[in-house]
Design a protein around this nucleic acid. Structure first.
Lengths: 351, 351
DNA sequence: CTGTTAGCGCCTTCAG
DNA sequence: CTGAAGGCGCTAACAG
């Protein structure tokens, strides 16, 4: 196989210097049309497809691409509405600046280490659902700028999160305000070892994942303030996919057959709870009220439409991408959340 | 800002040659522990994070990454179950070989050209739903290997597709075999200019998109062979997202109020048809039978579960990624399809 | 084991 | 407008 033709070959063949040939491709206006034509002709003859980005890259120092480190499993990633919205935001700003997006998966430590260590990008967005600390560590080692999402990477790195605790409070206040006293909490994972089902007090307090922990604290504060014994409110730990959510919802109904209200830590699990209620012949919101979290598109489309805590997911993605691409200083942003009232909540029947 | 420290700096500082320093990082077993320690020490002192992939890249010539060119809009991409399954396959083999994935969007021609022209990858997977010819042209110009999916890029490039026509035939044969005579066809887009609604004969024959065209031919062959006047069977063109599918389904029911069977060109539109049927008080499969296409996970989960034509989407993704990463010769693969019998089809009531 | 060297392909001064 | 030259950061081949 003949050595690949490069710019220098084209230049020689066209009888111009390499610099001129480079200009012919990258800044054609600087080159006399006649000469440019000669260069293009030579390129065609030699089968030269244009300057190779690899060379340009090294030269330029900047890649103009951003790596999105995907928590755990790409299959989950693509099926999760939250991740989808996030990527919409990221993609929006990348498209606007002609920047690339590299997906870095982290199914296991080796893959994550390899990916973060060798992705050709200017920085990373870390979706820290699974093992945030580890990803942060890897990103720090790589030495490129990065933003951690929903997980504190320590003071010298950027962070975007939402007011998880406040969101938890708003959800609980809404339900308490409606008059509910019998609660069930449908939570997400507390830590990485795959435990699901009922969560005892020790585990509640040892929650490793920031979002889960803070949302639960928010719920608990409000419930306690309303004189409800939080320890007696069942908390279920569920995985945030279709199967895990269905299982968790069933477990919650089993654990608290007389509850009138569910605080759900994501819309995915909230919707599973709606379905489980239907399966058990309970009407929402007649027999049972449910508040979700996130406000993904599915929340508005569910039957009944889900009352939920909205967080600005797309904006989160946009902000994260901008942070990396603009290369500014370290920033820590806490985005606001708010209650979106729809039809899955109502006063309890006998209030 | 001080010039970035590079391998040479570390080597000098550690009092070794650059080659040794390189080995210390990449093939530590070749370096005496004591020397390696000295190099690592120097790196730490200088704040050197390890060899920069950009340099390695140029040197190695190979990137070990694959670009997935996403049809049109990333938002659609992430929400489309078909794309999701495809990416699952791609991601599987990329993860297994520690290869990267770059998302190249093509919202418009400029973005596509820029992305395909400058992505740092070894090759492309072209998802040719929208404007296949244009993407193929761009990829050819870039001069990197690529695989076109579901769209013929011409003889000198790789192609993976499925037996669209055969799939159409199987679907129609199933329904005809059940005794149906009154059909409606819920199709996907015929070409790129955003037309939706009823499709006249001229447009049917001028279909630009390969999948749509071939599935329709498959349907038509079987219907005609059964003595059904194909020209009188309404064909609706719908966009393959939630909103477009719902709209198309409604249009089809309006156009053919007495049909007993629907041939749907994707599961997404088929499921919309199930929902539209429910909305109009028709039972599936009691009043109306529906056959989808693709067999995405949603098909099995719909109510009733959807009878559909399965195509091996995940495998398609795997195969495509392997083709690029293994750098073999041009290949053209036609993958088989088959009927998956579930509960959305039955004989017509008065058959 | 370790050091030397020659590029990988390109772009951008700088001098004409 | 064009030509010459240096260097982006790294690694593989080869010579000690």
């Amino acid at each position: 196989m003949p050595r690949k033709v490069k710019l220098a070959d084209v230049a020689r063949d066209a009888g111009v210097s390499q610099g001129t040939a480079s200009n012919a491709f990258n800044r054609p206006e600087l080159v006399r049309p006649e000469v440019r034509e000669r260069v293009e002709e030579a390129a065609r003859r030699l089968g030269y497809a244009g300057p190779d980005p690899k060379g340009r890259l090294l030269r330029a120092g900047k890649v103009n691409a951003i790596g999105v480190v995907v928590n755990f499993d790409l299959k989950y990633f693509f099926s999760d509405p939250f991740s989808r919205m996030l990527m919409t935001g990221v993609a929006e700003v990348c498209d606007a600046r002609a920047a690339g997006i590299a997906l870095v998966s982290s199914i296991n430590d080796a893959v994550a280490a390899w990916g973060i260590g060798s992705a050709v990008v200017d920085g990373f967005v870390l979706q820290c659902i699974e093992d945030g600390d580890r990803l942060v560590e890897l990103a720090k080692k790589r030495g490129l700028p990065f933003v951690a999402l929903d997980h504190d990477p320590g003071p010298d790195a950027s962070l975007i999160l939402i007011d998880e605790l406040g969101g938890g409070r708003i959800a609980a206040e809404h339900l308490v305000g409606l008059g509910h006293r019998k609660f069930g909490i449908l939570g997400l994972e507390f830590s990485g070892e795959g435990h699901t089902g009922l969560v005892d007090m020790a585990r509640r307090e040892a929650a490793e994942y920031d979002s889960t922990r803070d949302r639960l604290i928010g719920y608990s504060q409000v419930l306690a303030a309303a004189g409800i014994d939080v320890a007696s409110v069942p908390v279920i730990e569920a995985q945030n996919d279709a199967a895990g959510a269905a299982k968790g919802a069933a477990e919650l109904f089993d654990a608290a057959p007389d509850m009138t209200a569910i605080l759900a830590m994501s819309d995915v699990v909230a919707i599973a709870a709606i379905q489980e209620a239907a399966k058990r012949g309970k009407s929402v919101p007649g027999d049972i009220s449910i508040v979700g979290f996130d406000d993904v598109p599915e929340a508005a489309a569910s039957i009944p439409p889900l009352t939920t805590i909205r967080q600005p997911i797309v904006e989160k993605g946009r902000l994260a991408a901008e942070l990396i691409l603009d290369g500014g200083p370290v920033r820590r942003e806490k985005l606001p959340v708010n209650l979106v009232l729809r039809q899955s909540t109502a006063p309890p029947r006998h209030a």
